[in-house]
Amino acid sequence: MGILCLGVTMIKTNDYILTTQNLSKSFKGFVAVNNVNLKILRGNIHALIGPNGAGKTTCFNLLTKFLDPSEGSIYFNNTDITKQKPAEIARRGIVRSFQISAVFPHLSVLENVRIALQSKQKTNFYFWRSEKTLKELNQKALELLHLVELETYHNQLAIELPYGRKRALEIATTLALEPELMLLDEPTQGMGHEDVDHVMKLIKSVSTGRTILMVEHNMKVVSGISDCITVLSRGSVLAEGDYQSISSNPEVMSAYMGTQATESK
């Protein structure tokens, strides 16, 4: 431990977009996240890995305040955000995706993205206004769909998309908010090889100008695009560093072995 993660393109090495101090969460005595000190460098793609049940999703829930930490604090751009509500966190620029696919199933593909674009509008409580006023957002929504190659499906209901495309739609929806920090929970889970490659490239390409923290089991993705890796095991940070130091770390190996290897995913 103690190895610094240097962003390849970074000039300053201590420009952290997100840090946590002694972040902990226990569920009725069971400690799911234990004293975690994260430091996410601005501009990095930072991977959070660990065996099943390590506390990765719980970490995400804490960072986005879907859960209240039992202890510790969270700083975003040096501001303490520990006490804020999830919607406030999102408006500040931290937008998350979910481990299980999270689209709006009975809205059209276009509407899925547009609802994200709409969240910055001031007209959201105007129940007397026609929804036709939202049409001005369609162009932008289609551009985002183009980015994830879903343009041709814009009229379909999201529920009718195959799994891989649903995940791509989620990324487009998340991107619509132009988040400074994107949290992706297993973006390639359950995808075929081609889709994985595609999403990996997509993540790489949207990472310019923003920071990405992702939970990922697929080691090909982790080694391919992440600048820095944090390994969680039983709620605590086990190791941190670049792919090489992590992959040769015997503690990490045994942690994965101990619970069963999940790399095969």
Partner: peptide, 17 residues
């Protein structure tokens, strides 16, 4: 539109701000 989004997936709506 926002109501429908909340009906469809409340946590996602929250995470969009």
């Amino acid at each position: 539109q926002v109501l429908k989004a909340i009906r469809e997936n409340e946590s996602r709506a929250i995470s969009l701000g």
